Amino acid sequence: MSNFVRRIPEGPPGGDDRERLVCADCGYVAYENPKIVVGSVVVEEDRILLCRRAIEPRHGFWTLPAGYMELGETTEEGARREAWEEARARLELDGILAIYSIARIGQVQIIYRAHLSEPGIAAGPESLDVRFFAWKDIPWDEIAFPSVRWALNAWKAGHPGVAGNPVEDLRGVAGL
């Protein structure tokens, strides 16, 4: 088993300036980088697909079909896979809605606009329930994460390009 210590790796002047996990025996640097989350705002007849989480964090709260990318898949493939795993939904992606940088938890979230490519949804193993909600019926007090609210608001606003972190909501900033 390697003996990792947290320190600034040795290297050329002006090189790495952050503490990293470095093997004290061989000098191998174990980089810790942000995780990429992919998901979708799935809309059918002006109703939005939400999934009630069957897993932590935020068990029982509503979220978009989304989750961590896997190695060997594109962001599009990941978004479609997550929709299948959580809502048994087959999707057609309509472009990127938003990219959120959430430094405090080491995530970058890529959220697509989407619609069903085949009819039908059902709760997958990571969901207690899945439903389409009209805007006025969204359970806002039971939304799992701030970025879900951001994405829903970006969709509702008809954001013409790719939305980013709301400037008025500092929860994506490091240290908060």
Rank of each mutant, 00 (worst) to 15 (best):
V41M: 10
L49T: 03
R90D: 09
I36A: 08
V38Y: 12
E86K: 15
Y31T: 13
E86I: 14
T75C: 05
I105N: 05
I110Q: 05
R58P: 04
T74D: 07
A134I: 01
R80W: 04
A103K: 07
S117H: 12
V41E: 12
V108K: 10
V43F: 09
A123Q: 00
R131M: 01
H115M: 05
G120L: 09
R113P: 11
P34A: 09
I111R: 08
L116S: 04
Y28Q: 13
I121N: 01
I96L: 10
K35T: 11
P125A: 10
V29M: 08
L49Q: 15
Q107F: 08
I138G: 00
V108C: 06
A54D: 14
V37L: 10
V43N: 11
L97V: 14
V43P: 13
L128V: 03
A87T: 01
G95Q: 06
E70P: 02
F61W: 11
A98H: 01
V130E: 02
Y28K: 12
H59P: 02
W135Q: 02
G67I: 12
E56K: 15
E118I: 02
E86S: 03
G27P: 09
G78H: 11
V38K: 02
F61D: 08
S117Q: 10
E44N: 13
F132R: 00
K35S: 09
D25I: 06
R104E: 07
R113M: 13
D129P: 00
V42R: 08
Y100S: 04
E73K: 08
G124D: 01
I55G: 07
V108T: 12
F132T: 02
I102K: 03
G120V: 04
D46Y: 09
E44M: 15
H59L: 11
R131I: 01
R47P: 14
K35Y: 15
R52K: 15
C26H: 12
A122F: 04
C23W: 10
A87V: 03
Q109Y: 12
L50W: 04
I110P: 00
D129Q: 01
I48N: 07
F61T: 07
P125K: 06
P119W: 04
Y100G: 00
R88T: 02
T74E: 04
L91W: 05
E70Q: 11
E44R: 14
A24C: 09
I55M: 11
G39H: 06
I110G: 02
A66V: 03
S40F: 08
W84G: 09
I102L: 13
D94N: 15
Q107C: 04
D46K: 14
K136E: 14
R113Y: 07
C51A: 15
A30I: 07
E70T: 04
C23I: 14
G106W: 06
Y31G: 13
W140K: 00
L97N: 04
R80D: 04
W135N: 02
V108L: 13
E76L: 06
R104W: 00
Q109C: 10
P125G: 06
R88P: 00
V29A: 09
Q107Y: 14
E118Q: 15
G39E: 08
F61I: 05
R81H: 06
W140G: 00
P125C: 03
D137K: 00
I36K: 10
I111D: 05
C26T: 12
A30M: 13
E32V: 13
A123G: 00
A66Y: 03
G72T: 07
C26N: 14
L116C: 07
R58F: 11
H59V: 09
P125H: 08
P125L: 05
E77S: 05
W140F: 07
